Simulated assay, not measured.
Amino acid sequence: MKTILIAAATSLALAAAPAAAFAGDKDHGKGKYASHSKAHKQAYKQAKHADKQARKMWRQGERLPATYITQRYYVAEPARYSLAPAPYGYQYVRVDDQIYLAQTQTGLISQVISSLLR
């Protein structure tokens, strides 16, 4: 009888040990890759949101997001599109098939040039 009780107690203790090890683990045993997965999902959501923004067509008086007020989106050679040089403090910004004349400090759109790229 004692051997049966000892065997039952031992097997119960061995079964409870792994469960106790993961009790404080927020990732439920996934380790370092759980946070990587969360970061990947968050980056995907941000990229999806940025893609929706890129398809938006802004109007005069609206502000372009700061993402687009960077060298990457500036029109390097306005003359190529038959545009006059941008005034001081302004840049021509190309987003998809639209060109906007926007203030570099605020992103405020002063002119929308859409027919040049079609």
Score class of each variant (00 low, 15 high):
A13H: 00
A43T: 10
R80W: 15
A8D: 03
A66R: 07
K45Y: 13
Y92Q: 05
L5H: 09
A21I: 12
G61H: 00
G29R: 08
K32E: 10
G24N: 15
Q53S: 07
A76E: 05
Q46N: 14
A9E: 03
G107D: 00
A34P: 02
R80H: 14
H49F: 11
Y90I: 03
S37W: 15
K30L: 15
A76K: 12
D27T: 15
P85Y: 04
Q91V: 10
T10P: 02
A19D: 13
D96M: 06
L83Q: 02
Q103I: 09
A39V: 12
G29A: 11
P18E: 09
M57H: 08
A13I: 02
R55D: 13
V93R: 00
L108A: 05
R94H: 01
Q53Y: 12
A50S: 04
Y88S: 15
A102W: 00
S11R: 02
D27Y: 14
E77L: 06
Y74M: 10
K32H: 09
S37D: 13
G107L: 01
A20G: 12
A43Q: 13
T67E: 05
D96V: 07
T67I: 13
K52R: 11
L12D: 02
G61V: 09
A39T: 11
A23W: 12
A66E: 13
P85A: 02
A47K: 11
F22Y: 09
V75S: 08
A79Y: 03
H49T: 15
L117W: 06
A47G: 06
A47H: 08
Y73R: 08
K2I: 13
L101D: 01
A47Q: 12
T10E: 04
R63F: 11
L116Y: 13
T3W: 06
Y44H: 10
E77D: 13
S11V: 04
D97A: 14
Q60Y: 05
A66G: 09
I99M: 02
S114N: 13
Y68P: 00
R72V: 05
Y92E: 04
I6Y: 07
Q103H: 05
R80M: 15
R80I: 14
A21Q: 13
A7H: 10
M57L: 08
A39Y: 09
L101P: 01
H36N: 06
K2W: 08
V95I: 07
A23P: 04
A20I: 14
Y81E: 09
H28V: 15
T70W: 01
I113Y: 03
P85D: 07
G61L: 03
Q42Y: 13
A7T: 04
A66N: 08
V75G: 04
H28W: 15
